[in-house]
Design a protein around this nucleic acid. Structure first.
Lengths: 200, 200
DNA sequence: ATTATCTATAGATCTATAGATAATGC
DNA sequence: ATTATCTATAGATCTATAGATAATGC
């Protein structure tokens, strides 16, 4: 029954990866340890040799998803060096992103949950969120309201738009939130205000 | 043991009011029927004579909190008719609002949860959210990207900022998100860009 | 000898239902 | 007679722990 230390480490990573998806999909309180472990191909009994508590896993899985999602931002940005922000907006403010909670932005999927949880989870979100602010900040000129003010406003707009787009049934309304946010971000960040184009 | 029909109706309203607070505080999955009913001074057994299911209560409590919170917007707006948006921003983008989840904005407190729940809850959020968009839309000129585009972007920014402000431990960072959002909203909506003032 | 995982279980809690009780409504 | 609420409970699930097992690591 025992596996090698390397295999055990790998199993642990798998659990974190599975949890990072399932927590985003069902919330911290919406999925149990049994299902989390089963998703990693193990039984519940192995859990407490790997993690201190469910909250411990919540913090680690949050970090994993925040890092992964930021990685997707980096990839998108690299694909369009002349306008990285637009590349990010393009996938972030999309119906595809709205539909894919498990692989989507953890700030949107777990933001309400994080606010209710312990300082460990919030510490993870705090440093994760700083990463997004820093990346955005590198793409825009400061606006005289503090170094990261513009980046923080843009991140708020993006996160809020996807949150609201996911909270409604009407797909047209979802699309409107995404487009409105995109137009707003583009207007706010481009000095020579780029035209935003017709409604899709 | 039986109470009058009027009393039963009143009890039902109390349950909805209690649930509208406790759901915002703990999430739909973070509080049980026993505690919800206890908060209204009753036992769990009475629940299913009043509601079809927990999801039914979730939808009704969501509606109640969306209406109540919009009422607070109306009150704030009425207190400053020359600049209602500023009056709303003033309390919405505040640390006080961040600290008061149970009485605060349900889009922030339950947005992530709503996205995971059934069409009933989402239908409630949808019509609730339209109320906020409509109110905001009345306070700003359209921007050529569709009738409600600006209002939707502003709402996204406000909701996102409070969501992120609540997800971090560092109070200074929370404040920065709130101030950044306020500056962004003011800049976006005022044609003769109102100065935003020094950092608090 | 140690230990990663397993099965099994404790003890609490969850949603939902059943049946008893006592007051209302007719 | 009806019914709003109560107590009690079914049956499932939850987090966490205990002890067994079998393979690793020394």
């Amino acid at each position: 029954m025992r596996v090698s230390r390397a295999q055990a480490d790998e199993n642990r990573q798998t659990v974190i990866n599975v949890a990072s998806r399932l927590f985003r999909e069902h919330g911290f309180d919406g999925i149990g340890l049994k299902d989390l472990m089963a998703g990693a191909g193990m039984t519940q009994g192995a859990f407490y040799k790997q993690f201190e508590s469910k909250d411990d896993l919540a913090a680690q899985a949050s970090q994993r998803s925040l890092e992964n999602a930021l990685g997707r931002w980096t990839t998108a940005a690299a694909s369009k060096p002349e306008d990285p922000l637009l590349a990010v907006i393009d996938f972030y403010l999309s119906l595809g992103h709205c539909a894919d909670k498990a692989d989507g932005c953890p700030m949107v999927a777990l933001g309400s949950d994080a606010a209710r949880h312990g300082p460990d989870v919030r510490a993870t979100f705090e440093s994760g969120i700083r990463g997004y602010v820093d990346m955005l900040g590198g793409w825009m000129a400061p606006d005289g309201n503090g170094a990261d003010s513009k980046a923080m406003a843009v991140l708020s707009t993006m996160v809020g738009a996807v949150l609201l787009a996911r909270a409604v049934n009407d797909e047209q309304m979802s699309k409107s939130f995404l487009q409105a946010a995109a137009a707003s971000v583009v207007t706010q960040t481009s000095t020579n205000a780029t035209p935003v184009g017709p409604r899709q």
